[in-house]
Design a protein around this nucleic acid. Structure first.
Lengths: 341, 341
DNA sequence: ACAAGTTGTGCAAACGTTTTACTTATGAGC
DNA sequence: GCTCATAAGTAAAACGTTTGCACAACTTGT
């Protein structure tokens, strides 16, 4: 049905191999032949069949992205499109396509990965977040499949990955509050088993210690990446005899809940309680007041991760670990000197 | 390198064709043989090579999603993940994979589509939003490639598509305001060339007319899907001698801008100005006050679109057009009787 | 006991490429 | 004019499947 390399060959009066060489820009093809063949290709609207190509070349020009399972969904909601844009930009540049896959549970997910890898559908894999003792990572390492992890592996060292320096990011955020004269700073945290949460907590305590400030366990509230989480944290954290006057919040989404909670309790922001948060989603600047947040470079994360992956695939150069710079975006929620209009 | 059908055949003491038939569950294979072959397959960790399979079967078990270009990005930011989840759920169920592609401009986009289709990489295509006189749609129709459009085509009738009934949705939203006793209702609109915008405007005017209410052109402000758009609209719309006391807003994101603008101008919501909006993104319930919004069923949109596409591919049954039900989610921003805590 | 099915399996061609090894034409050097 | 190198192109095998056809070994029905 579709026009093949043979059709082109016949019409151009050459052999199929010659056409193939024209496409591959093989040096031993004369300019004249090349030109003629290309003309015929255009004329017939020829596009090489990728399946046949992949079959012999053992390469698909496709990389896979494994979608996290529902559990991790919420956080992703706001990152995904931006992240994907970064990925696509890089892949398009390099002439690669993207295959998306997932699974409803851990076994299915591993099954999908095995199917894609063994079935020769992809040249490499992008993993969005990992859990500890992840069988997928183990499998990929054994099979020697190029992959890049977004985030940090808690199990293996030297896993090729792209991440933020979350310790430093939290350190910067906390330092910012300190520089605003804050002395009693709390931390509204996320799920404790995530590397991201752990790292941000580390950065927070480090900044406190360095400034000689008090670390109070009761000022640290663990939660989830949910608005409700931030909302509920407020009643427990602010009901103490000496509540904090500033909060580092694990995520913008949670910070929205914090805002809501504080407002209901009658606190003004930032006069009574100052806030800094992370991830700088598009809505952080729209709240009342706008929230100071650490921009983690979501697009960059995707762009760089793909770049690393392509490097690994094309040059077999092992890529260790790369950090995407973050940037504290200061808005009213953290400013001592802020006075409302 | 990888284990092939021949390896399995040899080890099981049968011919490759038999193995192939076992996989395909061909009726004329004895249970005994089938069983033995499957054992060997497991033992060797065999997975069929999809490229070889596709080459001969002319089918890839893959559907493509074309990402809209940057221009349409903003709206998508909040839909994309949810939409994709719906798509993936359906595809996973049916054993299909998803290939994502895009382009930076119209020509590139068409090029990508042609490459994928002619290159035999996909069995069908999902299109996120269409512009008028879209060459991609024309191409797909000519080539007889199964595809489903999200939204509505302004050029062709009977294009297989999944959409909301935006006229009805806007009608419902406006009606709700009217039922709250509102008489002066404005409309903060989106880009006029989009079908979605046009339809919602239609529904709005229809509801007004039916209730015998005044339609004032100066109460309708065109804009974009941006927060700033809503923000700016307020200064123009509210500076009139007789400003509206209620607003239908094209999108939650825009509504955030509206909220901000009204707050700055000293209006209380909903006492002075009531608001309903569309799309019901996760943050609509988090604003002050929470926004009444029409939920358009984003996940359903993806799920149903994929289902339609698979139907077309598998049964060659033409699927015309399907509407996803919407649902007005009433919150404080539209309630006359609302009194703040 | 024999024709006519039925059941289970194998052979080999085909899918559309790439690539190795080979052939032929073209000059250059002497 | 002959040899040799180089340039330009071709033939054919290979990639890992599926599938139409052939065929042997059993069942049946008579």
């Amino acid at each position: 049905m579709s026009v093949t390399i043979k059709d082109v060959a016949k019409k151009a009066g050459v052999s199929p191999s010659t056409v193939s060489r024209v496409i591959a820009e093989h040096p031993r093809i004369s300019a004249k032949t090349s030109h003629r063949v290309r003309e015929v290709m255009d004329e017939l609207g020829y596009h090489p069949n990728m399946m046949a190509k992949s079959l012999v070349s053992k390469t698909t020009k496709t990389i896979g992205v494994i979608l996290p399972r529902p559990a991790e969904e919420l956080l992703l909601n706001f990152f995904f499109y931006e992240f994907m844009r970064g990925v696509m930009a890089q892949l398009t540049r390099a002439g690669y396509d993207l295959l998306m896959a997932g699974g409803n549970n851990e076994r299915e997910e591993l099954g999908t990965v095995m199917r894609l890898v063994r079935g020769g559908r992809i040249d490499g894999l992008l993993l969005l977040y990992s859990r500890s003792s992840d069988p997928v990572i183990t499998f990929l390492r054994n099979e020697n499949v190029p992959f890049v992890l977004i985030g940090r592996s808690l199990d293996y060292d030297n896993v090729p990955s792209v991440d933020n320096d979350n310790v430093q990011a939290a350190y910067d955020a906390t330092k910012h509050l300190i520089s605003q004269g804050q002395r009693r700073i709390g931390f509204v945290s996320g799920p404790a088993h995530l590397a991201m949460t752990q790292d941000r907590l580390t950065g927070y305590t480090k900044a406190l210690a360095e400034a000689g400030l008090l670390f109070k366990q009761s000022w640290v509230v663990e939660g989830e990446f949910l608005l409700e989480s931030g909302y509920r944290a407020m009643s427990s954290i602010m009901s103490q005899p000496e509540p904090p006057t500033a909060l580092v919040v694990i995520d913008d989404f949670v910070a929205f809940g914090v805002l809501k909670g504080l407002a209901e309790l009658g606190y003004r922001i930032p006069e009574d309680v100052a806030i800094v948060s992370f991830n700088n989603i598009a809505l952080s600047e729209l709240t009342m007041p706008p929230i100071t947040s650490v921009d983690i470079g979501t697009y960059q994360l995707g762009y760089t991760a793909s770049q690393m992956l392509l490097n690994t695939i094309q040059h077999e150069a092992f890529q260790a670990r790369q950090l995407i710079p973050h940037r504290l975006v200061v808005r009213e929620s953290s400013l001592r000197t802020f006075s409302p209009v």
